[in-house]
Simulated assay, not measured.
Amino acid sequence: MSKKNIVLLLAPSVLILMGFFVFPLIVVLNNSILDENGSITFQHYLLYFKDQHYLSITLRSLKISLITTFITLVIGYFIAYFTTKYIKQKILKRIAYILIISPLFTSAVVRSFGWMVILGNNGFINKSLMGLGIISEPIKLLYNETGVIIGLVYILVPFMILSITTVLENIDTKLEEAASDLGLTPLQTFIKVTLPLTVPGILAGSVMVFSLAMSAYVTPAMLSGGRVQLIATVIYEQMMQVFNYQFGSAVAFAVLIFSFLIIGLNHYILRSDWIEEGRR
């Protein structure tokens, strides 16, 4: 295939990427470095990084995103491992995958409303615990960080499962059989063979979940009732309520740069020597 044909084939994708991704980024960057008079300035970035209020919100967003990523990793790895290793029939495995991705077909608003019903003082969880006599009064699971984390874990766990499942499906079963023949127990085989080979999937899933948790707005806003401010909330308020597009753009672009750094770190780790040693 000639270079001219390759360029023609790539042209639609490049145009779409430029129109829906690159151009909006240029607009956001342009807004973030201009003041009211149109002069170039970095005062919006300085305000974001120096103001203790925005710093605390950023740290809270990082904390919630990291906790969400960790819980999602634990739950996602267990489900992915069970689905891959213990469900052998193809039809059952397909049903399992459909159940895993089915929440993605529902709007985030609908899912958040569902969790508001479940986590409320008169919700399923509190009523069940009180009915069993485990608690005497409702546990505060809604309108706080706990509710936000629960909602984010539920919404983002399919991404972690799919990332890890993709790697587990491609692991040669002969490696685990060889480890067993050499006298390793199932736990030792998992720690020394399976787990190192699934590190790329773990990293990919973790980066995806962390980035989505950092930028999530609908779920935290609904499950916190506006009581837990996150970085996405700040961007929305500055853009849509205060109409301070310059500062909102600066915060959005700073978060974007941070996400790119996380992706770059993930790429570096995947290319590092200890990952290669684990694969060997």
Rank of each mutant, 00 (worst) to 15 (best):
I57W: 00
V228G: 00
F243I: 12
V28W: 07
R280Y: 04
G151H: 01
S259F: 02
H53E: 13
N121M: 07
F21R: 10
S2N: 15
S112N: 07
V167C: 08
L15M: 13
L156I: 07
F243M: 13
K90S: 15
F253A: 11
V255I: 15
F253Q: 01
N31M: 14
K50T: 15
F159D: 02
G19V: 03
I235A: 07
G114L: 04
N30H: 14
L8Q: 11
G120M: 03
T146D: 08
T72Q: 04
V157A: 00
I75E: 03
K174V: 13
L10E: 07
I235G: 03
A179F: 12
V157P: 00
L104Y: 08
I191N: 09
V209Y: 00
P138H: 05
T219I: 09
G114F: 01
K63I: 11
N122C: 06
I263L: 15
Y48G: 08
I235Q: 03
V242W: 05
Y268A: 11
V234E: 02
F190L: 09
F159C: 05
L270Y: 09
I57Y: 00
T69P: 00
S136E: 14
Y217T: 05
I231Q: 01
D172E: 13
L99S: 12
I98V: 15
Q188P: 02
L34M: 14
S259R: 03
M1D: 04
P24K: 11
